[in-house]
Amino acid sequence: MDVFMKGLSKAKEGVVAAAEKTKQGVAEAAGKTKEGVLYVGSKTKEGVVHGVATVAEKTKEQVTNVGGAVVTGVTAVAQKTVEGAGSIAAATGFVKKDQLGKNEEGAPQEGILEDMPVDPDNEAYEMPSEEGYQDYEPEA
């Protein structure tokens, strides 16, 4: 019985440690998101679009440190934060509304985080759909 109880105690310690790591990862992701939003706020009209992409990228980098179902929630929060940063930029006159959601080359930025393969159960990952990809044929 002692062996059984000791095993359960060790398992509990492992769960607590994993929860603490997840909590730490979420806190880091939130900190990076805040950094990115402050970065966007300090940019001029020309830099705002690039700044919004930076927020998304920093958040995406930190999301990889967070495991399990938390990833889905962090990704949703990050996307809403990026959308909010863009709205703030438009409201303050840093950028025109028609410039939001495009990178410096004018290509749409939507789907940055949505296409990231995420499995809350950590069982399997699927690649994003290939609808947006084109076949590449090298020139002879």
Rank of each mutant, 00 (worst) to 15 (best):
D2C: 11
D2Y: 13
D2T: 08
V3T: 01
V3M: 07
V3W: 05
F4Q: 00
F4D: 00
M5K: 07
M5E: 01
L8W: 10
L8M: 03
K10P: 00
K10D: 02
A11R: 00
A11W: 14
A11I: 15
K12Q: 01
E13A: 05
G14K: 15
G14C: 12
G14Q: 09
V15Q: 01
V15D: 00
V15E: 00
V16P: 01
A17I: 07
A17S: 12
A17C: 12
A18R: 03
A19C: 05
A19R: 04
A19K: 12
A19Q: 01
A19L: 15
E20P: 00
E20K: 08
E20D: 06
E20H: 15
E20T: 14
K21G: 00
K21C: 05
K23I: 04
K23M: 14
Q24K: 10
Q24R: 09
Q24Y: 12
Q24P: 12
G25D: 03
G25R: 12
A27H: 05
A27I: 04
E28G: 09
A29C: 10
A29D: 00
A29I: 11
G31T: 10
G31W: 11
G31S: 15
K32T: 06
K32P: 01
T33D: 00
T33E: 00
K34V: 08
E35G: 14
G36P: 02
G36R: 11
G36N: 13
G36V: 13
V37R: 00
V37H: 00
Y39A: 02
Y39C: 04
V40S: 00
V40N: 01
G41H: 03
S42N: 12
K43V: 10
K43G: 01
T44M: 15
T44C: 04
K45Q: 13
K45W: 13
G47M: 13
G47D: 03
V48D: 00
V48A: 05
V48R: 01
V48S: 02
V48H: 00
V48N: 00
V48Y: 04
V49K: 07
H50G: 04
H50E: 04
G51V: 07
G51S: 09
G51R: 06
V52R: 01
V52T: 00
V52Y: 12
V52Q: 00
V52E: 00
A53R: 15
A53W: 04
T54Q: 12
T54Y: 11
V55P: 01
A56K: 04
A56C: 13
A56R: 13
E57N: 10
E57W: 09
E57Y: 03
E57A: 06
T59L: 04
T59P: 01
T59K: 01
K60R: 14
K60M: 05
E61R: 02
Q62F: 10
Q62K: 09
Q62D: 04
Q62V: 05
V63A: 13
T64H: 05
T64F: 06
T64R: 13
N65S: 02
V66S: 01
G67L: 07
G67F: 04
G67R: 03
G68K: 11
A69C: 04
A69N: 07
V70L: 15
V71L: 09
V71C: 14
T72V: 07
T72Q: 02
T72C: 05
T72A: 12
T72S: 01
T72E: 15
V74A: 07
A76T: 12
A76N: 01
A76E: 07
A76F: 03
A76P: 02
V77P: 02
V77W: 14
A78C: 03
Q79S: 06
Q79T: 13
K80R: 13
K80G: 05
V82K: 10
E83L: 11
E83S: 09
G84A: 03
G84W: 14
G84E: 08
A85V: 12
A85E: 03
G86V: 02
S87N: 01
A89K: 08
A89Y: 13
A91P: 02
T92M: 15
T92S: 10
T92V: 08
G93T: 01
G93R: 04
G93D: 05
F94W: 05
V95G: 03
K96E: 06
K96S: 09
Q99F: 09
L100V: 08
K102S: 11
N103R: 07
N103Q: 10
E104P: 15
E105K: 08
E105P: 11
E105W: 11
E105R: 05
G106S: 08
G106L: 09
A107T: 07
P108N: 10
Q109R: 04
E110L: 01
E110S: 03
E110H: 05
I112C: 12
I112Y: 07
L113A: 15
E114R: 10
D115I: 04
M116D: 10
M116A: 09
M116E: 15
P117Q: 08
V118R: 12
V118L: 11
V118F: 06
V118E: 04
D119W: 10
P120H: 05
P120A: 07
P120L: 09
D121P: 15
D121E: 15
N122K: 06
N122Y: 03
E123G: 11
E123F: 04
E123I: 15
A124V: 13
A124S: 14
A124D: 06
Y125C: 15
Y125P: 13
E126H: 14
E126Y: 13
M127R: 12
P128R: 08
P128Y: 14
P128E: 07
P128C: 12
E131F: 06
Y133L: 13
D135S: 11
Y136W: 10
Y136I: 02
E137R: 07
P138R: 09
E139T: 03
E139C: 14
E139F: 10
E139R: 05
A140M: 11
A140T: 07
A140S: 13
